[in-house]
Design a protein around this nucleic acid. Sequence first.
DNA 1: CATGAATGAGCTTTCATTCAT
DNA 2: TATGAATGAAAGCTCATTCAT
Lengths: 194, 194, 194, 194
Amino acid sequence: MKNNKPKYKLIIDAAVDVIAENGYHASQVSKIAKKAGVADGTIYLYFKNKEDILVSVFEEKMGQFIEQIVTATNERENASEKLLTLIEMHFSQLAANHHLAIVTQLELRQSNLSLRQQINRILKPYLVVIDEIVKEGVEEKLFRSDIKIPLIRQMIFGTLDETVTNWVMNEEKYDLIGLAPYVHELITKGVSVK
Amino acid sequence: MKNNKPKYKLIIDAAVDVIAENGYHASQVSKIAKKAGVADGTIYLYFKNKEDILVSVFEEKMGQFIEQIVTATNERENASEKLLTLIEMHFSQLAANHHLAIVTQLELRQSNLSLRQQINRILKPYLVVIDEIVKEGVEEKLFRSDIKIPLIRQMIFGTLDETVTNWVMNEEKYDLIGLAPYVHELITKGVSVK
Amino acid sequence: MKNNKPKYKLIIDAAVDVIAENGYHASQVSKIAKKAGVADGTIYLYFKNKEDILVSVFEEKMGQFIEQIVTATNERENASEKLLTLIEMHFSQLAANHHLAIVTQLELRQSNLSLRQQINRILKPYLVVIDEIVKEGVEEKLFRSDIKIPLIRQMIFGTLDETVTNWVMNEEKYDLIGLAPYVHELITKGVSVK
Amino acid sequence: MKNNKPKYKLIIDAAVDVIAENGYHASQVSKIAKKAGVADGTIYLYFKNKEDILVSVFEEKMGQFIEQIVTATNERENASEKLLTLIEMHFSQLAANHHLAIVTQLELRQSNLSLRQQINRILKPYLVVIDEIVKEGVEEKLFRSDIKIPLIRQMIFGTLDETVTNWVMNEEKYDLIGLAPYVHELITKGVSVK
DNA sequence: CATGAATGAGCTTTCATTCAT
DNA sequence: TATGAATGAAAGCTCATTCAT
């Protein structure tokens, strides 16, 4: 019984594993090809070059990541609840996929400017999702309107990202998902008492 | 009149410039040596290997960076003011040194696990400074005590880091330092109204 | 209405164009197949391998080339006139077909020994034609008999070939055909006065 | 006792041998390096890239080739004698160096346009030497003035080149140098009787 | 006959590091 | 200390050829 998965997907999945296991710079194309069970040359029938594999990995995985979050947050009533759901989903999806967490938090950052810019382009829709939740909160008079939204979004994304990165670098030893309500509390209420 | 700076420092400074100008991956040892005005081989009298140059660059620059912040925050009366000063100093020091900002926010992230861990070790004292300000705030009953300090520190550092990275990736087009009070407000009060 | 030319000929013609346009080393089999409107694999139903395409190209085109010259020279009365006709035909056929001129004068020379030997084999009949004209001239007491025919043939072919190559490398800027009588004069009378 | 020849010359000589033995396309840089007794990387301290090795080989050898001919022809009294000496030297130098003959007559022709143009540039001085002998002959009223010099030069060079190529392709089985007077006779007097 | 997806061997060039001087 | 010429391992990508359909 042969493997019927389309080669594109086979290669993407192999790339996630290989990058997570070996790190970005030790992920030779030949290693990815071997893991995917295809010839080296086959990679180039589906991807323009090595960088294109990485971008596609991120595009593919990030697409699913964002879709899950959008679906889940849409089921919530107000901006604060949506924000909590976003945090929970952000944490839970990365906690559920060890390799993906390593790739997004560590490996994909080791890239040159060109790749970085493409990653930012892919990340954009997620930032837009955050922006929209914040806007909604402002309209609902739940969130402050005296600070520019991009700055608020940077705080939210920066906090989530730093929290996940710390968790990954601590070898995922503690419960990331359990932190969600505390992070939500911090973001909404801030560090000050009352 | 020849340059009397010790070669160690010459090489460190050359490395910062070369990395900022060419990017991490295009920063060959020979380029750094040329900029520093020494022979390639001389580099290896002062540094174990290429990675050691990078770690030393970060160590050197980060040491000064932290020292400045510690000195400045010590002159403040309470935790909230200290936090504001820390934010201002964090922003102003990077805004004042274009090359250093690029190196810390973009280039040094493109490194392998080993280098990343050493960078974290170097970053540790800065995180400790943040922790201490938070602890002081808690003792002063200014900051909340119901959330673990590491989480609060991650929010603070994550927000600052994300804000600076965005500013660098936007080609430093807007006034970073001017954002300090708003970021401080967000961190202390949160996104919620009141 | 689809193209009814037999695929063999389609491929040969495509190969001439592709080689002339892209040069020998950039003439991938897939490019020739695309231009011919057939699948890559189809090529191998008609040709043993890539080299075989090139040999066949030369064989095909050279066959026509020689045939034209034989026909035309046969209409002449004596060796000297035949030689002039041969020169005129040699020049005019290449001048009339830009792509063929590039392929014969430049691209086909960039080949390995095996291909070169096959090309020589194909060229042989042309050299025989020259030899026969010379022999005829000797019999008619028009041409000298004190120098071996192969040497005379080398002078004739060498002169023609060098003249055409120079014209091609000068981007065919001047009138090649107009040179025929001068070249004929040089070959028959030599460079010396009287 | 180590080899004191400068590496540049070592590599040039190794390249001639390797190309003659293996042919142009099978002459990997690593093969040349091995033959020269240096590391692969060392090649790139002396040559810009692989093509540069080939150009340099031709430049170096052709320089000597031309110099010898210029020196020898300058010792002759008139244009006809100079031409004979040029032919003799052209033949004898290639006959004396089997590898060089193969490289110049066969291997260096298998090159792309860029390399071909560089080779032509290097060949230029030789063509100028021929031109000058012809001009001298015209002034001395020995050579005809009714045909443009470039055409005469093409006949001369074409004849010599074709003669040498034939000799090389016939595995150098006959005496090339002995052909010189006959070739000279053909060039000066032509193929016609009287 | 025809297809075209898949194969995988093959090669130039870079650059961190060494070491004889 | 300082030099810089020399080293040589390492890897992305191409493309002629095959073969299952």
